[in-house]
Structure formats: structure tokens, C-alpha cells
Design a binder for these strands. Structure first.
Lengths: 150, 150
DNA sequence: GGAATCCCGAGTGATCCGCTGGGAATTCGT
DNA sequence: ACGAATTCCCAGCGGATCACTCGGGATTCC
């Protein structure tokens, strides 16, 4: 049970953008280099993030990506949903109605998955990229060796 | 991001066994029938659960499976780990040391995954099959139409 | 015009999932 | 002793998804 690495890379990229928020568009090449991810692969993820309205893109020379809103209003959950689909440990507890299981009303096992989903959403939706930025800067200031995200 | 249906079926099967705890071995066929799962497929899952020490098996006629311990001492987390491996949203936050990422100490994104893992474990490890049994019986008593698990 | 970008779709090898099949070993009832 | 009921084990398999790569088109700045 893992999120795919799309999500891992996507969150890293978004954090990178958050750390450069307000400085104009950041080209993919720069992000890919800092995060050691294939530029071409990252491109696909950014496409999804753009369609989800989380990043804005500028084409042409001096173009690139930037956050579509301020870091404090974008959560990790937003990114996960954009890249991975609805957050749900099993199909039968996805939020959109499609049941996929006709025993929903009286399925006892399902109560566990519902609680699990809530608890996952609580963590993911309560963490914004502003929070992560702050943590990153803190880490940089306490002279903690070297900062990964420049 | 879903658990595989191994887990879904496995939890249902374990709950079935829990509801028949103390009545001697339950044959696979009975479980498979009640839970509408392929008997042969369920067999594989039970193999994993047996190796994890969660169920005991009796071969031959009148054989079958039963919980290896009392329902109150087996959690949903136990079953998930037996069928799905360590609970971790990303490989880099698996409990056994294997890092897979050399930036662990200063990777800010990782803190989110760690918190997520904890929160998932908290839910899964705090739910025992005795709890689920109780919920199932409650539901049966409140005349809630019909009980799925007989 | 030319370089730097984003944009898009197609292809690919590996891996896993969900399931099926066949058959051996074990145990119980008669 | 026999046969039915069961667990056990291994092997295969079609489809899906993942993590990429490749190639090329469109756009924008200098």
C-alpha cells in the first residue's frame, strides 16, 4: 500500500514552487535538477497539477511554472487528489457515490475504512505548503547541515 | 491509492472467523460462500494469514480455519500487514530501516508522510476484531434489515 | 530568427493484481 | 481400508498500472 511516486515527486515539486513563490515562473529544468527527477516525467505531473488548478504555467523563454494561489491555501491533500485520484483506502469508501458494493449500509468492515479515510484526509488536508515552507526555512536556519531544497 | 482487495477480503474473512470463534474450525467453502469470494483465491490469503500466525488451520474432513488467538487480541492492522506488507504511504517511511532515499534527515516533505503513517497505524491498530464483532451483533439486534455476516 | 520553454500523445519494459487450475497431502467417518 | 472433505502448494495468465522515454509541435522572449 503505497502512494505512487507521482505523488512523492509532485509534492516535492510543489514545495519547490512554494519556496520560490512570488519570484516569477520557475522552469521545469530547475525543479527537476533540484529534486533529481526526470524532467520529462515531471512534465506529465505538472500537466495534471495545472489541470487541477494548482499551478499556472507560462510558455516560451523565461517561462515556467508557479503556484496558482498562495502556498497557505494549497494543501498536500489537493496535490494527492490531483495526481492520485480520490483519497480512499478502498473503492467502496470513495466520496463520490459510486458504491461498487451493495452491502454498504450493513457492512461492518466498511466502518474501519471510513474511519481510516477520515484520518488520512485530516492529516493531508490540514497541511499547507506554507506550513512546509516554514519547516524548510526553520531547518535551514538551525544550520541543519545543508538544505535539500535550495 | 487503494489497499488491494486482498486486504478487503482478508478483513472480511477474519471477521467471519471472529463471529464463529470458539465453534471449531470453519471450512473455507463456508467463508467464501458467505463473503462471495472465490474459494481458491481466499485460500491464498489464508495461507498468508496462517504464516503470520493469525489463523490456525486443521486439515482433512471437518477441518477448516479458526482464529489463532482471541478476537480482542487481533487488530485490523495485523491483517493489513500480513497481506499487504508494512503500512507506509511511501517506501521512504517504512518502519524497517531500509531508507531508499538519502535525504531522510532533512527532507521536509517526508514529515507529512510520517504523520500520515502514524495516523493510519493509529486507526488500524486500535481496531480489534472483537470491536467489529460487537458492532456486527449490535447491528443485528437493532433489526437493521438483515445481517450480511451470518 | 533562434533559443528557451511548455504541451501533447504515443510507446515500452517491468511489475503487480486478481484469479484459475491441477494436483498432492492430510484427516475424518463408515 | 476406503472415500469424501479439506488444507496445502506451485504454476501460469491476462490485464492494468507505473515510471519512464521519445519525438515533435506550439508559444514566447530576446
Amino acid at each position: 500500500m503505497h502512494f505512487s511516486s507521482r505523488t512523492e515527486y509532485g509534492v516535492k515539486a510543489m514545495l519547490d514552487l512554494a519556496l520560490h513563490y512570488g519570484e516569477g515562473p520557475v522552469p521545469l529544468r530547475a525543479i527537476a535538477g533540484r529534486q533529481s527527477v526526470s524532467e520529462h516525467y515531471l512534465e506529465q505531473l505538472m500537466g495534471a497539477l495545472r489541470k487541477a488548478g494548482l499551478v499556472a504555467s507560462a510558455r516560451g523563454a523565461q517561462g515556467g511554472y508557479e503556484l496558482a494561489r498562495e502556498p497557505g491555501s494549497i494543501t498536500v491533500g489537493d496535490v494527492v487528489r490531483a495526481l492520485e485520484g480520490p483519497i480512499a483506502p478502498l473503492p467502496c469508501v470513495e466520496e463520490d457515490g459510486r458504491a461498487h458494493c451493495d452491502e454498504i449500509a450493513r457492512c461492518v468492515a466498511r466502518t474501519v475504512w471510513v474511519r481510516l479515510r477520515s484520518s488520512m484526509e485530516e492529516v493531508l488536508d490540514s497541511t499547507t505548503f506554507a506550513d512546509l515552507c516554514q519547516k524548510a526555512l526553520q531547518q535551514r536556519n538551525t544550520g541543519d547541515s545543508f538544505m535539500y531544497y535550495i
